[in-house]
Computed example of a mutant assay.
Amino acid sequence: MDDYVDISTQEGFENDLTSEGFTLKLRFSETSFEITFTCVIFTIASFGCIGNLVTIGKIVHDPKYHTPTFAAIGVLALADFVSVTTLTFDAMTNFWKFLPSFSVVGDIVQLSSYFHLCLLSAVRYLITVYPLQSRQYLTATAVCLCSLTIWIVTVVAILGLRYTSKTLPEKNVVAIYLTVNVFMLLIVCSIMALLHVKKIRTLQNSLSVTEQSQRRMNIVVTVIIIIFVLYQLSIIAINITIIFLYQQFSAELYYHRVNIEYYYVFTGCINFSCNPYILFLSQFL
């Protein structure tokens, strides 16, 4: 939900839509800091794309991973792969000039990624708390159908929000996006935390689950939530600064707003790139 993250920050671009066609250019490539920042972001994004693609490929081609849990991980990896790709192109290049509606795709895939994160938490909760019922009703096919439903709902929600925003002043639109982002922060964190707490309480009564396994689960959920919160807070901070800039333009506030954008891009790439590696490294804790 970052449609208004890039507002008023395109001054570093040149007009690349010439008679010779579209030329893709990097957004941050002038100072040493910008070049370093660009290299770091593309490195993180590359590892994120590779990690998510490998996760998807492994789950699809290896029959032993055709389980509800790995199906949920696979559909999350797909959403994260598309999210980190769109975020990188939208924030780090002038691709928006070639396709102005590209930010709509970014909103859809990022919102879908949030819901898929909740889906993974729900699947793990159901398997742990209701194992017998889950074996009967919760299948990999059911998870994939839930994923398809999520994609449909997010497309309808974002397109509906966009259509509604067309008739409103830009200041009000930013306020709406701020409200939506705050709501998403609260709802995603609440769902993940509550389901995890209930799952851990159930596991504490199980002799087959060791303290080390519970600690691993706590670390995984905590890290994922922290990274998500940091990213979402950056979007909220940018929305707030834009609202203040509408009220009264300030060069200092604009400077801080641009600095927050660096933080936003960095945490966004981390957020959509880290899940495969967190889930993998957790096996060794």
Rank of each mutant, 00 (worst) to 15 (best):
T86K: 01
F115M: 14
S121R: 05
D90T: 05
V129E: 09
T93V: 06
R124D: 14
A122P: 03
P68R: 00
V105H: 06
H116K: 12
Y65N: 15
P100N: 04
P100S: 04
A122H: 05
A122I: 10
P100W: 01
C118V: 14
M92N: 05
D107G: 08
A122D: 11
M92G: 03
H66R: 15
L119M: 15
S83D: 02
P100Q: 02
A122G: 08
I108L: 10
L117K: 11
Y130M: 15
P131S: 10
P131I: 07
F102Y: 14
N94L: 01
K64T: 10
P131R: 02
F102Q: 12
N94I: 04
F89D: 01
P100L: 00
P100C: 08
I108F: 08
Y114N: 13
V109T: 11
T86R: 05
Y114G: 09
L99R: 08
V129D: 09
H66G: 14
F89S: 05
I127C: 13
T128I: 14
S113P: 01
M92Y: 02
H66E: 15
V109P: 02
V123N: 02
L132N: 11
D80C: 10
F89Y: 03
L87Q: 06
L119G: 07
L87Y: 06
D80A: 15
V84F: 00
H116D: 12
V123E: 07
D107F: 01
T128H: 09
G74Q: 08
L126V: 08
V129M: 10
T88V: 06
V104I: 07
Y125C: 13
T128C: 13
K97Q: 07
V105M: 14
S83H: 04
V104C: 07
C118W: 02
T86P: 03
L76M: 11
Y65M: 15
I73A: 08
R124Q: 10
I108E: 08
D80V: 02
A77C: 04
V82Y: 03
F89G: 00
L111Q: 06
A72H: 03
K97Y: 04
D107T: 06
K64G: 03
I127K: 14
Y125E: 04
D90N: 11
M92D: 01
V123I: 05
M92P: 00
N94K: 00
V82E: 01
L117T: 15
D90A: 09
F95G: 06
A71V: 05
V109Q: 10
I73Y: 07
S112M: 12
F115T: 15
